[in-house]
Design a protein around this nucleic acid. Sequence first.
DNA 1: CCGCGGGCCTGAGAGC
DNA 2: TGCTCTCAGGCCCGCG
Length: 291
Amino acid sequence: MPELPEVETVRRGLAPAMEGARFTHVEARRRDLRWPLPKDFAKRLEGTTVEGLGRRAKYLLADLSSGDVLVMHLGMSGSFRVSHAGQERAPGNYHHERPKHAAHDHVVFHMSNGATVTFNDPRRFGSMKLVPRAKLEQEPLLRSIGPEPLGNEFDAAMLAKACAGKKTSLKAALSDQRVVAGLGNIYVCEALFRARLSPKRRASTIADRNGKPNGRAAALVEAIKTVLHDAIKAGGSSLRDHRRADGSLGDFQHNFQVYDCEGKPCPSCKGKVKRVVQTGRSTFYCPSCQK
DNA sequence: CCGCGGGCCTGAGAGC
DNA sequence: TGCTCTCAGGCCCGCG
C-alpha cells in the first residue's frame, strides 16, 4: 500500500464521487478484511450522505450525515475504483447484466450521483470501520498517530522531540507512525537520501541533549515535506498495486533516487546504491552520501 | 515503556 | 511449462 502520497491521491480521486452523495446501496461482498466488517455495515451506510472525505496519516475518513465516520485503510494492496452508470458495460454487451465483479472486489458503494466506488484488496490487509464521530478522538487506530508531516506544526523541533532518547535507527523511527504520520518504506528511504542522513544513524542524534533540534533535524523535515509534496503532485508511486481512483498510474516511481535501486549509481555521487535489511524490511541508501 | 520479530494474506517474479 | 521459493508500499500483538 500506499503511503501518504498514494492515500492522498486516492482521496482526491474519490472526493468528486463521494462528497455530497448518498449511499443508495452498499455491498459487503467479503466481510473478513483485516478486521471483520460488522453484520450491519451496509445498513449503517445506506441512506447516509458523505459530508466530507478527509485523510489522517494513511487512513481515509468519510464524515457521514448519520454521525458516524467511515474509517478506511488500504493495507498493502487495497485500491478504490470509481465508475459511473453505463461506463462498466463493454461495447457490444447489450445484455442488461449487472456488471461483473472482479476478483477481490470486497466492498461496493453505489452512490446517489450514479457513481460506483469499488474497494478491491487481494491481500485483505485493508480495513473499514464505522466510528461515531464523537468517539473518533479515542479511536485506538488513530489515537497514537503522530503529526501530519505536511502540516505547519510539523517542524524540526517537533521531530527532534519525538526522536530524542530513541535508541533505534532513523529508519525505524521515521517508519513509526507515532513519530510522524504517513511515511512508509519508500518515502522514509527517499527522505533520508534527500537529507543525506544514514538510515542506520541513531534517531536520537537529530536532537541535542535537551531534545532541541540540530541541523540534521531541519534537513530531515525539509526532505520529508519536499518528497511528499513532489510525490502527491505526481499522483503517488505505482509499483505493484497503487492506482489512482480513475485507474491511471502514479508517476513518482520514476523519481526514486534510491528506493528499489540496489546496485544502480547514486544520483549524487555515482557510487552504488546499497540494500540492507532493517527491522525486517529493505532499506535502500547511498553509504557514501548518507552519513 | 521500548524495540524486535511474527503473523496476517495473495500474487508476482526469479530460479531451477 | 510448472513448481517452489522469496519478497512486497502496513500494522497489530506478544515477547523479553
